[in-house]
Every structure is written in structure tokens, then in C-alpha cells.
């Protein structure tokens, strides 16, 4: 895999359905290798962008390149190097996962023996062991999602396109699936574009985020550039926020207030000590002191509110 080829590049990309419904309008974005979160509300155009990338749909305007190739002319080459996990159910109930993933590996061009070997290996990687010989119809939603992921991974793609991989999963299932996606991106060395309408969920595993809204680019940035100066502590106390805010500001900390919560920019370990001392000196009861995890989400939300 050549790390310098952009995963997906679009230029004024437009897709209209039947002349009336506009799924994508003038989308210009460059998605670089890594684990990329593609976020937006339902109907923002995420799935459409994925389908255009695979050449499953044709754009009505603009340009798109995937791994440096044009899906319309080099669709075969792209489809051989990309793995796709659709959003909706796409599994036959009356075959075993082993049989199904092997077949999909062969359709991707793997010789029969290699397909069989990679299928069981891939199913193991996604966490399906002996149950892979059972009929898919009897699987739980979580197991089905794993099979969907395995069929996208069986031919060792350079790029994985995952459309809402946590759909229909319970919180524990979501966590496990996201951990899996993160491992694929970081340990397996496969670039991942993962769609989600839940920003808070995927921001933890991504190296960069692309937000689209109503078929337009809202924001695209690497996560490090967004979170560089965003380590924030949230403090909640029983009354006395004003006094605490004053005290901490007096100590030289940057304090912001949001309703009853104080947000303090983390400035090394002694920030914790200063907060502890301030709370103790003012004799307040501390309810919550935690590192703020949703800074990126806030950035996006602020951005969105300006649009």
C-alpha cells in the first residue's frame, strides 16, 4: 500500500436522484489515509459518497477519484482493492458464515484454497470461531455485523468502506465493533472510511473526520489538529460555581462556564492540584471532575450552528 495516495478525492461532486432529490451538492474533499470518520445526519449523503466511490452509482456532476483511480473507468481495479460493508442486512440466512465469506473471497478473485484459508482467518479476527460453521440465520445482530465486516475484509483490501457498522448494536456491541475497526486501521494497516451519524462514537477511533451536511462539506480535518489545544476538564460543584470560577481564574487558569459546568483548560498535572485546593479552600462539594471527551463534537456543533 502506498501511503501517499489519497483515499478519496472529490471535486465539486454532485449526485441527484431523478433530477429532484439532491444527495450530494458541490462536494469537494480530500480524504487522506488513516481511519477516517465520515459523519453527518441520516440523509446527509454519506452512503451516496460511498456508492459513488465504488462506482455503484454514477455522479451527475464533478469528479471523484478513489486510490488515485476513477471509479467510472477503473472501477474493476478499485473494486478489487476496496472492501465494502453496506449499512443494511446483506447476508443469506441459510448458509454458514465460513461458506459465505469463502464465496465472497472467491468473487473478489482469491483462488479457492486461499479464499477458504483467509475466510476462516478473517472470521477469527472479527471474533467468530466455532460458530462460523453455523447457519447465519441463527446469528445475533452483533455476529451478523461481524460477518458483514469479515466479507469486506476477506480479500485483504487497501481500503475499507464501512457504512454505519454499529447499526442496531447494543452499547457493548458498539464498543466491540469500534475497537475492531480501530484495530483494523491501526494494526492491520488498512485504511478505513467509517460512516456514522454518531460523532461522539467514532471520534474516539478516528485519525481524521469529515463532516457533511445536506450533501455539502461541513468540515474536514485531522483529529490531532482539532484536539491539539482542547484538553479540557469539566468541573461540577454544588453551588458556588461563581466563587470557584473566580478563584481558578485568579490562579491563572482559563475558565469557561456552560450552565452549571465549569470548563478549565488542562495545563499540566498541577491543574488538578489547583482545582483540588480551590474546591477544598472554598469548602465546596465536588460532584464531577472529568476530562472532556466531546471536544471535537463541540467543534463540529459550533461550526454547524454558524452555517
Amino acid at each position: 500500500m502506498s501511503p501517499h495516495v489519497n483515499l478519496i478525492e472529490t471535486e465539486s461532486l454532485e449526485k441527484r436522484y431523478g433530477g429532484t432529490v439532491t444527495a450530494l451538492a458541490d462536494l469537494t474533499v480530500t480524504i487522506e489515509p488513516g481511519i477516517v470518520g465520515l459523519v453527518g445526519a441520516n440523509g446527509a449523503g454519506k452512503s451516496t459518497l460511498i456508492k459513488l466511490s465504488l462506482g455503484l452509482l454514477e455522479p451527475t456532476g464533478g469528479k471523484i477519484r478513489v486510490l488515485g483511480l476513477d471509479p467510472l473507468t477503473d472501477g474493476n481495479a478499485i473494486r478489487a482493492r476496496v472492501g465494502y460493508m453496506p449499512e443494511h442486512d446483506c447476508l443469506p440466512p441459510d448458509v454458514s458464515a465460513a461458506e459465505f465469506v469463502t464465496h465472497m473471497g472467491r468473487v473478489s478473485g482469491l483462488p479457492a484454497a486461499a479464499a477458504r484459508e483467509r475466510a476462516s482467518e478473517t472470521l477469527r479476527h472479527v471474533g467468530l470461531y466455532e460458530e462460523r460453521y453455523r447457519q447465519i440465520g441463527g446469528y445475533s445482530t452483533g455476529m451478523k455485523q461481524r460477518v458483514k465486516l469479515a466479507q469486506a475484509l476477506v480479500h485483504d483490501p487497501e481500503l475499507l468502506l464501512l457504512d454505519e457498522p454499529t447499526n442496531g448494536l447494543d452499547p457493548e456491541g458498539r464498543r466491540a465493533m469500534l475497537a475492531l475497526v480501530h484495530r483494523i486501521g491501526s494494526e492491520f494497516g488498512i485504511s478505513v472510511v467509517v460512516c456514522s451519524h454518531l460523532l461522539g462514537e467514532i471520534e474516539r477511533i478516528c485519525t481524521s473526520l469529515v463532516a457533511i451536511e445536506n450533501g455539502r462539506l461541513l468540515r474536514s480535518a485531522s483529529l490531532s489538529s482539532m484536539t491539539q489545544h482542547s484538553d479540557i476538564l469539566m468541573i461540577e460543584v454544588d453551588d458556588g460555581e461563581d466563587a470557584l470560577s473566580e478563584r481558578l481564574s485568579g490562579d491563572g487558569l482559563a475558565v469557561r462556564r456552560k450552565d452549571r459546568v465549569l470548563m478549565v483548560t488542562l495545563n499540566g498535572d498541577n491543574t488538578f492540584d489547583m482545582i483540588r485546593d480551590a474546591v477544598a479552600d472554598l469548602d465546596l462539594s465536588l460532584h464531577r471532575l472529568e476530562q472532556h471527551r466531546h471536544q471535537v463534537a463541540d467543534l463540529f456543533r459550533e461550526e454547524a450552528s454558524h452555517v
Binding site: 473478489s108 478473485g109 482469491l110 483462488p111 480479500h155
Partner: peptide, 26 residues
């Protein structure tokens, strides 16, 4: 889930073998 550790141990292998074309897919 507990399999995370196990998966880690196996390690992911890239596929270096042949990729056959459209005809083979058909």
C-alpha cells in the same frame, strides 16, 4: 469481550498471493 487478547496474538497477515480477474469471479 475476551477474544480481543486472542485476536491480538494471532496477528493479521496481509495477502500476497494472486488475485484473479473478472472471469474467475464470474
Amino acid at each position: 469481550m475476551s477474544e480481543a487478547g486472542v485476536i491480538h496474538d494471532i496477528g493479521y497477515q496481509r495477502y500476497e498471493g494472486p488475485r484473479l480477474g473478472r472471469r474467475y469471479s464470474m
